[in-house]
Design a protein around this nucleic acid. Structure first.
Lengths: 225, 225, 225, 225
DNA sequence: TATGAATGAGTGTTCATTCAT
DNA sequence: AATGAATGAACACTCATTCAT
């Protein structure tokens, strides 16, 4: 049914392209943006190709022309949003900060990014509902991810060296936990809000959660309390 | 489009029902079980009423007879899985354990439950994709949830009293974090596995994550390092 | 793309069916008849499922319910028309006629059948355009075909015995030729009419062709001129 | 819908065209060849303009430039293949052979031509499915066809004169039959192969059929057995 | 001469749901 | 209580054709 290999063809246009006849790249971009919104709101199965085309101010045929199909379009969206967050993380230049500050900055950034880009969360959830199939071809991403883990490792190493962090912390476990405590709160804010009968998204609630999360991570890695 | 109110009609059959309706209840139960599997695997939009009927060994018309429609069936499934986990938590009788043991037990239970009931996670994700609409009518659940928070509060209180826990910890924030560090790891295991190029589900990996999570929570609430 | 195996499921309804709830068999029959007309007129690729449904006074969904799809419907149509002609041939009871009369009767019947059932010809052409794929599962047909060849063989044998036919004539080659000289004239009547600038379908032309064909076959098999 | 008149514009480029237009003619030729293959394989409705353009190593727009549209392209293809076979027949120079040899040569040639050019058969079938509409404008062809019939008439006349052939044979009926017995065997080889469960295309089978056909025609026209 | 971009109408197929028994 | 028949709206996807360069 799903031809995952098609995802390989969904790479963004090559940068060498100079003359943009009739704005092909712009159309492609508008479709991608519309698809991101639509897939984020309704999931892969719930999103409608018609709606994406209309939202993009284009027409259905172009989606098939540029991306090959709905699933391949989903692949392209996924790759894009993952590249976006990894690029933003890299732009933090955490290597330039003292280790404790760097770590707090990372927790704060992760939280702020999820808040500012709520589509990221639902898209990742959709990708996982489909067992990650649509991400399998994204080799560029794996490289970026490794760079990111290395950076976190460097922060940990510097912290251990300067005595503020414990030794022996797995950077991937740490990374997962940093993401988890923000991501979970936000992705489950609706059911959580109903069941706990609590405001999740007010300013005070958000600030309280961020503070709790920073505390959680710093206590986890500190050399002493 | 969505008639959330239909969810009200999706309550499980009342216990007063005569015993001769055994078959009817059995059919209802098989439909509910089939729906759980199907919605968990494909989401609300991706699941097919036909497939649910077939998997239940029943026919489509019965779904409309017992539940009113696809969305109402989804409501019933959601309520059931939430009740199941809350009941299981209550059965832990954490009040009978010393506070540190009780807390470790809770972290461990939460992790094990998610592992043993993977549908729970994808169903909750689906519920949140739809902004929790399908949970709005589930009043029985809100009560249970409150009981659960109270129990965690009691553990924290006992821990503070005996000096092993810090004071001032919000039981709901703690609860969210306990869930988060297990839930996130498991729900995003596919994309995580691909991007980190790491085994998520092997025995060693699972044990390592559980240990990391217990450590995270205990460090978070301990009165000192 | 084409799942030829689906054709297997396109067998006509089992005769054991007694109670016809809401006229299921009638609907099936009307769809089959409409499909025959439509496929004959426009070919497999040219025929439209919408048009078939409308012509059948039914709706598109029923086509998929009863036949599984467009191609499977084509399989069912093909099987039906082949069974029809083989049944009609069997009804001729040629075994009861003197060999020469039987053979003339067969040539005449074949010609008349093609004239009365022009869809047969275009349907067979369509089947062959697709390399016969849609006939592969029709085992019932192969049996009938064999019975038919055996009957022709018996006529030939009786003719040889009585001295009117030559010995050594292959019944299948003869059969093919009997079909060919009628079929070709009719299937290519349009291009033939244009290129030869000749009336193909007037009464006189049809009679002349039939006479020519009978003459061709009798000269081919006669023991002497 | 169908604008048959467009076929008029599909004449091949006039020879007066300057030599510098070599590329243009080459493109036109490649499109025509690709179209022949594609129409032969899938019929008029089944063939895809995109596929033809790609197969021609050209682009879709050129098809519209040179031929005007899909149907007009089909007209051009049809005219070409008919001219090809008529030219090949003329090249046989049957007037130079004794009548019996000439007739056998013609049967043999027709058979060999169909075998070597299987597209001819499916294209003619497609043309007839559409009631010959696409051939209506091809006046050049009608002339050639007449020349061909005249040639067959001359062979028959010579045969009657020399006593080897019967008198009174209609050259067009004969022509049709010569074509029929080869054409039918080949066009229906797939369904025939399945229903008769017989090899149609092996060397021995082909030779046997050719021998049978020559025998059929010679017996039909011989003055005596 | 040549070409990629664009499109509207349509194409086979599937859906949740209702009807009739 | 249970079920096969039926449906219309929608679905992903494709088509021949025209536009702009």
């Amino acid at each position: 049914m799903l031809v995952v290999e098609e995802c390989m063809t969904a790479q963004s246009t090559t940068p060498e392209r100079k003359v943009r006849k009739r704005d092909a790249d712009a159309t492609r971009g508008r479709i991608l943006a519309a698809a991101k919104t639509e897939f984020a709101k309704l999931g892969l199965a719930g999103a409608r190709v018609d709606e994406i085309a209309e939202r993009a101010g284009s027409n259905k045929r172009m989606i098939y022309h540029y991306f090959g199909g709905k699933e391949a379009l989903f692949c392209a969206v996924l790759e894009e949003v993952y590249l976006d967050i990894r690029n933003a993380e890299r732009a933090l230049e955490l290597d330039a900060l003292p280790p404790r500050d760097a770590m707090e900055r990372l927790v704060r950034f992760t939280w702020d990014y999820y808040l500012a880009n709520p589509e990221f969360i639902t898209l990742v959830n959709s990708a996982n509902l489909h067992k990650g199939k649509h991400l399998e071809g994204a080799d560029r991403l794996k490289l970026r991810q490794r760079e990111f883990v290395d950076m976190v490792q460097r922060i940990l190493d510097r912290g251990v060296e300067s005595g503020v962090f414990r030794a022996g912390i797995d950077p991937i476990q740490l990374n997962i936990t940093i993401a988890a405590i923000g991501y979970y709160y936000l992705t489950n804010r609706h059911t959580g809000g109903i069941l706990f009968q609590r405001d999740y998204m007010g300013d005070a609630a958000l600030e309280a959660r961020l503070a709790f999360n920073i505390d959680t991570i710093l206590r986890l890695i500190s050399s002493e309390d």
